[in-house]
């Protein structure tokens, strides 16, 4: 017993080695590449496209950080991870950023020693059922088999929601979205539950999307956002302001197309964001003055990224809804760039 636990300790210490010490920004610069922990594949958020290049809403954020830090949105390596492994991977130093539809919760923030740097998508947990079942509300699901990704907040929400409403069910735990899809389509379960955005993405990938309906109930708050390790405030600030810069750019009407002409704008906030005028603190953060300009020209603003991967013109067809900027009636309210 003793020997075995030493062995485990050894293995774990090897896995953990290298997390401590030097500033994350220096590590990334030295590597010349940012490493991002992402989904194993979720249409619209993170999936390799037909050329094998990772693309999606969560991927865009990684590219934006790379553009801000390295000046090159292409300098990103991706580490696909299941829901269950993601935090372990982040803390073991397998990547500098976790951008993987991750719900911001108290215990994940505090107990798991991580920092959520913002919310890039306000989501909520929903249910999808085959239209042929004739179910119109989640309250009619008594006795159903429910496919669910293990190691997620959805697992806990489901248990809470169903016991509050006195609904019995059979949980069918599944490791990845792809397997959940296969089991759901094979009829192993009546219902698939995950974040509403994930349901839209999954449904869009079906052969006959119209044979399935998403029920009206949204049973939880799921603020999704990127995560970094505790203990490096500089890196957390970079990660946080990269996301904010994308949103501010949309607020100010700067797009990847017009960023160059916007440099001539009279608006001081635009001038500061694009590095025409000095934005105090950028050098303290360890970034070059054109950090936000690089993000906007190489990746685009928040709205562009949303429309490109999730919006009405895509297969997912999600509307902005609560994910609009505050000035458009949504929840994204961004501190000013001053």
């Amino acid at each position: 017993m003793k020997k075995t636990s030493w062995m485990v300790a050894g293995l774990a210490s090897i896995a953990l080695a290298g997390t401590a010490g030097a500033a994350t920004l220096d590590d990334v610069r030295a590597k010349g590449e940012l490493t991002c922990i992402v989904n194993t594949g979720l249409a619209g958020f993170a999936a390799p496209n037909d050329q094998g290049v990772w693309s999606g809403f969560d991927i865009d954020y990684c590219r934006a950080v790379a553009a801000a830090v390295l000046g090159d949105a292409g300098a990103v390596g991706f580490v696909p991870s299941t829901t269950a492994e993601r935090f372990t991977k982040l803390r073991a130093g397998e990547g500098e950023i976790l951008s993987r539809n991750t719900t911001w919760t108290f215990s994940r923030d505090v107990d798991l020693q991580q920092t959520f740097v913002g919310v890039n998508y306000y989501d909520g947990q929903g249910f999808m059922v085959p239209a042929s079942l004739g179910v119109s509300s989640a309250t009619e699901l008594d006795g159903a088999s429910v496919c669910i990704q293990t190691g997620t907040t959805t697992e806990l929400n489901l248990a809470e929601y169903f016991s509050l409403n006195n609904i019995s069910y059979e949980p069918v735990p599944i490791a990845t979205n792809a397997e959940a899809q296969a089991n759901y389509l094979a009829g192993r379960c009546d219902v698939y539950t995950t974040d509403a955005s994930g349901l839209a993405a999954t449904k869009a990938a079906f052969d006959n999307p119209n044979d399935h309906v998403v029920l009206p109930e949204v049973i939880s708050k799921e603020p999704l956002g990127p995560v970094v390790r505790h203990g490096d405030d500089q890196w957390a600030d970079i990660a946080s302001w990269t996301l904010k810069a994308m949103m501010v750019a949309e607020e100010l009407g700067i797009t990847s197309q017009n960023a160059d002409e916007m440099k001539g704008s009279e608006n001081p906030e635009i001038r500061r964001l694009l590095g025409v005028e000095e934005l105090q603190g950028v050098t303290t953060l360890g970034l070059s003055p054109d950090w936000a300009y690089n993000i906007i020209t190489q990746v685009g603003n928040y709205g562009e990224s949303f429309e490109r991967h999730l919006g009405k013109s895509t297969k997912l067809g999600l509307s902005r809804g609560i994910n609009a900027l505050a000035k458009d009636g949504g929840l994204h309210y961004i501190p000013p760039v001053k």
Binding site: A9, S13, A17, Q113, H230, G231
Partner: peptide, 10 residues
């Protein structure tokens, strides 16, 4: 090594 890494991770 484990102990020191646990300490750094708090």
């Amino acid at each position: 090594n484990v102990i020191s890494n646990f300490a750094t991770l708090n």
